[in-house]
């Protein structure tokens, strides 16, 4: 520790100039932060469990325990269930954005990032991109598990992939919502506590697990047209058939609406949070 430390002759690169330079930097910074979040994910056993084992348990639970008691006219329950489980899983996964950001704030990492010559947006875009990558991994596992328990999509490969894409985009838009929560919470525990009361009604008062027409009539409106249900219905139509266009349009509309409102909100929270 006593060796002389070299004189600071050359510092970091000079700040980017021009739109091209700035864009190149924000992409490079986003990738750096994405990589960091994905590396962290592989090293937190709880996070791995949360994004793999837990959704598999949900599949098995609904397929073999509750499924027998749920009547879905026109299709096997497992075919009805899988699109719902997909959306429920990625929606639950989005909570990790709020917890992760709250933790970064708490531990002073964001403070360090703010004093670095990096793109301001990269902390948020890197986090949400890491979530997107994780979700790709999750839907691949879920597809395999689904097939193992008897899920048989009937519409072909392309519509199936279309459904997956829809789910990933929807999850990405949710990540920004949970980023707002994470940036508003005092710590990671609060972030978690704030997230679930939002998540439970959206995923369970929905068409994800049971047909909406068995619910009380006053609940049916919400349960049919709320964003999670709309996305589930769109995926179901794309994967196992049925009227598609209206649901897909509604789901894309929710996704775009969320992005348009939540990205500026999250960026604003990030800038003003002290």
């Amino acid at each position: 520790m006593t060796t002389a430390i070299a004189a600071p002759t050359l510092s970091g690169a000079p700040p980017a100039t021009g739109i091209g330079g700035k864009l190149r930097w924000s992409i490079s910074d986003t990738l750096t932060i994405t990589r960091r979040n994905l590396l962290a994910l592989t090293r937190i056993p709880e996070a791995l469990f949360f994004s793999t084992v837990q959704p598999i348990m949900f599949v098995l639970l609904f397929r073999y325990v509750f499924g027998g008691a749920i009547n879905t006219p026109g299709t096997d329950y497992v075919n009805y269930l899988m699109p719902g489980i997909f959306v429920q899983t990625v929606a639950f996964g989005a909570v990790s954005t709020s917890i992760g950001l709250a933790e970064d704030l708490q531990k002073g990492l964001i403070e360090r990032f703010r004093a670095l010559p990096m793109a301001r947006s990269a902390v948020l875009t890197g986090r949400t991109t890491a979530d997107l990558v994780r979700n790709v991994f999750v839907v691949i596992i879920m597809t395999a598990v689904g097939f193992a328990v008897g899920f048989r999509p009937t519409t072909g490969v392309l519509p199936y992939l279309g459904g997956i894409l829809l789910i990933l985009l929807f999850a990405y838009s949710l990540s920004w919502g949970f980023a707002v929560i994470g940036l508003s919470a005092a710590n990671s525990e609060t972030a978690q506590v704030m997230s679930f009361p939002l998540l439970f009604p959206l995923t369970f008062i929905s068409s994800a697990f049971v047909p909406v027409d068995k619910m009380p009539s006053w609940l049916q409106g919400f349960a049919t047209y709320q964003p999670v249900s709309v996305t589930v219905s769109a995926c179901r139509a794309l994967m196992i058939g049925g009227p598609t266009a209206s649901w897909v349009v509604q789901s894309v509309a929710w996704t775009i609406g969320f992005l348009v409102i939540l990205i500026p909100l999250a960026v604003h929270r990030y800038r003003t949070r002290t």
């Binding site: 970091g12 690169a13 980017a16 490079s28 750096t32 960091r36 670095l116 990096m118």
Partner: peptide
């Protein structure tokens, strides 16, 4: 390395 990359070295 992360901090170095964010400094665009």
């Amino acid at each position: 390395v992360m901090v170095g990359n964010l400094n665009h070295l």
